[in-house]
């Protein structure tokens, strides 16, 4: 791979990457400059994206040009949210919110059980069938893990010296192991992001990688 040190895109990317990484030494004005620049750029991009993705296609194209006047109703419903900034009339903002919550709940309830049921079923079904010793061991551990993790969240029953207490204590360990796995994955993800930046700096920018 040849070096593209002065290619504008590569040079800009390299300067920004190094400026952001300079935070590893300590907080400094160069890092602050690019951090604020990023926030500003992202904010401006979000406004442009919202306008071009939602506002213009609905108001300009659909309502004004195509004459779909029924779309005015959701637009008005959306605008009612801004009544939350008027203290004496903020109750009006609850109407669009209640509509969205109702719509969202109905939408999710229509589809989610189909996805969740196999999860519940799978927790139990693997106890028998054509499986190796390790498969069965895995199934037993999964079953114990699910039941004990759920037991940990039984806050309304007496736990001290009871079977529920023992299950809850086991569940606490299961949850800690799960969180440990999640933390490990997060660390690995961050390393990968850094590897990606190094591939860019050493390869795309400096041309040192084959």
């Amino acid at each position: 791979m040849g070096a593209n040190i002065f290619d504008p895109a590569n040079l800009t990317g390299a300067i920004i990457t190094l400026a952001v990484l300079s935070f590893l030494i300590k907080d400094n004005p160069v890092f602050d400059l690019f951090q604020h620049g990023f926030v500003g750029l992202y904010f401006a991009y979000s406004i442009g994206l919202t306008y071009h993705s939602y506002i213009r296609p609905t108001i300009v194209d659909d309502i004004v040009k195509k004459g779909h006047y029924s779309y005015v109703i959701p637009v008005i419903l959306g605008l009612l949210v801004y009544f939350m900034f008027v203290p004496s009339m903020n109750w009006i903002a609850r109407y669009p919110m209640s509509f969205w919550v109702g719509y969202g709940a109905g939408y999710i309830l229509a589809f989610q059980p189909g996805t969740l049921m196999p999860q519940i079923y799978n927790t139990f079904i693997r106890f028998y069938g054509k499986a190796t010793f390790l498969d069965n061991l895995n199934a037993i551990l999964l079953f114990i893990g699910v039941i004990t993790a759920l037991a940990y969240f039984f806050f309304t029953v007496r736990k001290q010296g009871t079977a529920v207490g023992l299950a809850a204590e086991t569940g606490r360990w299961v949850i800690m192991i799960a969180l440990g796995a999640a933390f490990g994955s997060t660390v690995l993800y961050r390393i990968t992001l850094f590897v990606g930046r190094m591939q860019f700096l050493l390869g795309d920018w400096l041309g040192l990688l084959k």
Partner: peptide, 13 residues
Amino acid sequence: NVSVPGEMPYVQS
């Protein structure tokens, strides 16, 4: 990578 533990149960099922 960070999403793998959360998605694995769907592979197992």
